[in-house]
């Protein structure tokens, strides 16, 4: 009886260890400020609103205070809100910069001044590769392109993924270490060769990474950068 009581007591102590606690992932990344307006030439004596995107140190989109400057305000001037105005023929570099929690980020866009406003064509297709970040097989080349209502992520013949993982999912993310705020494309159902994903309501510049994640193990398996 004494042994039984001792065992019950010991088991009770054990169960205190069976509580859910916290695991932490290292999801800190370099913040990114990027000018997303693709204007190439600004018509003289007109104005154009320059747009930006800022992704913070965990890859979340965020509105920040941006300082806009021009290398030659006599050609193109820009106000504090990012409205650029062309005054004379020539070209100037427009710089956007911000400092968040002591970390500086910036981007530069060269704009010419001409008779018409023109835009730089977005790359028709982005090419890249996925690589494993684990011991599970994952590799292959892909293309990433705009469609009428979104984007298409297409994998080539050399794509291979381990079939040992039952819950492998693919995401679009701005943090290659986390799926927080990521877009879940879906569960991986093709493990070899050509296949593609049609993703509506997403544009090419919305995300920077493909992340492969095993949900049952809650761990990243691989990644690819756009």
């Amino acid at each position: 009886m004494k042994a039984l009581k001792l065992s019950v007591g010991f088991v009770s102590i054990l169960w205190l260890q069976a509580c859910i606690s916290d695991d932490y992932i290292d999801d800190n990344i370099e913040p990114v400020l990027q000018i997303v307006s693709n204007i190439d030439t600004l018509e003289i004596n007109t104005s154009f609103q320059i747009e930006y995107q800022y992704f913070n140190n965990i890859g979340q989109s965020e509105t920040v205070e941006v300082i806009w400057t021009s290398t030659d305000p006599d050609i193109i001037d820009i106000d504090a809100a990012g409205l650029a105005t062309a005054f004379q023929l020539g070209s100037a570099a427009i710089k956007a910069e911000t400092t968040v929690d002591g970390v500086e980020s910036s981007d530069v866009l060269n704009i010419a001044v001409g008779a018409f406003t023109t835009f730089e064509e977005e790359p028709a297709i982005i090419e890249g590769s996925i690589v494993t970040t684990s011991s599970y097989e994952l590799e292959g080349d892909f293309t990433y392109e705009s469609t009428a209502d979104g984007v298409r992520l297409a994998f080539k013949e050399n794509y291979e993924a381990s079939t040992a993982l039952p819950g492998l999912y693919v995401y679009l993310s701005n943090n290659n270490n986390s799926i927080a705020n990521a877009f879940e494309i879906g569960k991986v159902e093709t493990f070899s060769g050509v296949h593609d994903y049609e993703i509506p309501n997403v544009s090419l510049s919305d995300y920077s990474y493909i992340v492969y994640y095993c949900k049952p193990f809650n761990v990243k398996v691989g990644e690819g950068a756009f």
Partner: peptide
């Protein structure tokens, strides 16, 4: 009893994936 821990951001302490049992 089978449980998995919470997954949190080391940067922000934000809960990314809640643990379950």
């Amino acid at each position: 009893r089978n449980y998995m821990n919470n997954v949190r951001s080391r940067t922000t302490d934000e809960l990314i994936i809640p643990g379950e049992a």
